[in-house]
Design a protein around this nucleic acid. Structure first.
Lengths: 188, 188
DNA sequence: TTTATTTGCTAACGAGCGTTAGCTTTTGTA
DNA sequence: TACAAAAGCTAACGCTCGTTAGCAAATAAA
């Protein structure tokens, strides 16, 4: 791992736990055992780090979803696969997921607009699956926008407590969440 | 409304949209049409504002839940009522809800510990309902901790897009979310 | 061994931060 | 009208911030 990657990684954990704005370059340097000024031999700016973390995660989510998109299965099954893919990315790197989900708003233009565009496209992909399920009668709901926002929200808190050493694997978690969302508490 | 309350209110919208750390006292003063120093005729400190907003909201959530607690109804119905109460508080003041949910970590000790205690107790109240539903066989799920975290997460994004002038009332929203969580997409 | 590259240090810059002291103006009350 | 309280202003404090310039050490390649 290059020094630059190491900086990104340590910065990610700090951004997640303290927030981007409340993390100083001197904090980050201290964590790495160097002086603040030395960071600038490797990075361009503080926001430079944030951009890399955010867009790298966005790419990962998109890549994971693309494999689901092409599958020719019923909407319910496709949604299960999409949830599993999403959970896999979330749990693979929880700190980066936390930054991606909570700190993106500290991006400045034009990165901010670009990021929002990607985010919107990703949500639209989920909506497409739900619309399909509604069209075939598999899903009984009628407001796919509301459903997808709820769905993603119920997934996106995972990074806050998921620990790799826990007893549930990412796929276990995905199955649990899929059952809950598709069948509900009463028919779980 | 006193000047102090007005300051709290304007600060709340700024804290929510830019984050606590990224909001300056000079920003806040500008929004109010006064000078930064003048704020200190009314408030003790920047964090003073954050404390008031966070604990005021915590009180509101607790008060709303207490009315549900005493009802003698099946778990499923009680959960519906708790969800409706939670949604009502969330939608009554979305900016304050946003601060309560996302900015509390900028509290310093001992407020931070106190806040976390209240938050934990609130979550525990929800868990109690779900445990009851599991015990009576009404809920088919088995991990009540996981369920409650998912449940609250699926509610707590609401403040981000809810607009009072929208076509769904808070109670409509609560019913929609209750149906989704209790019955699932397939049995909605 | 020479040379180039990577990595790091020191010291400082200009700017912005939360906050305070002391004073003036406005407002409400008797 | 007189007076007290509330509200706001100006100017500055001590501090921290992200970042830079210039230089030195370590590392790797030739």
């Amino acid at each position: 791992m290059s020094r630059k990657e190491q900086i990104d990684q340590v910065a990610t954990t700090l951004f997640k736990s303290r927030g981007f704005a409340a993390t100083t370059m001197r904090d980050l340097a201290l964590e790495l055992g160097i002086e603040a000024g030395s960071l600038y031999s490797h990075i361009k700016s503080k926001e430079d780090i944030l951009q890399r973390v955010c867009f790298r995660m966005a790419d990962e989510f998109n890549a994971a979803f693309d494999e689901v998109k092409s599958q020719d299965v019923p909407a319910g099954e496709k949604l299960r696969l999409a949830i599993a893919a999403h959970v896999r990315v979330l749990t693979k790197n929880p700190p980066a997921a936390g930054v991606f989900l909570n700190e993106w708003r500290h991006l400045s233009e034009p990165s901010l607009s670009q990021f929002n565009g990607m985010r919107h496209a990703y949500e639209e992909s989920f909506r497409e699956i739900v619309r399909e399920g509604i069209a075939t009668g598999e899903f009984k709901v009628n407001d796919e926008k509301f459903v997808v926002l709820t769905l993603l929200s119920s997934l996106n808190w995972l990074h806050m407590w998921y620990k790799p050493e826990g007893k549930m694997s990412p796929d276990d978690i995905a199955e649990f969440l899929s059952n809950l969302l598709l069948n509900g508490l009463k028919n779980f």
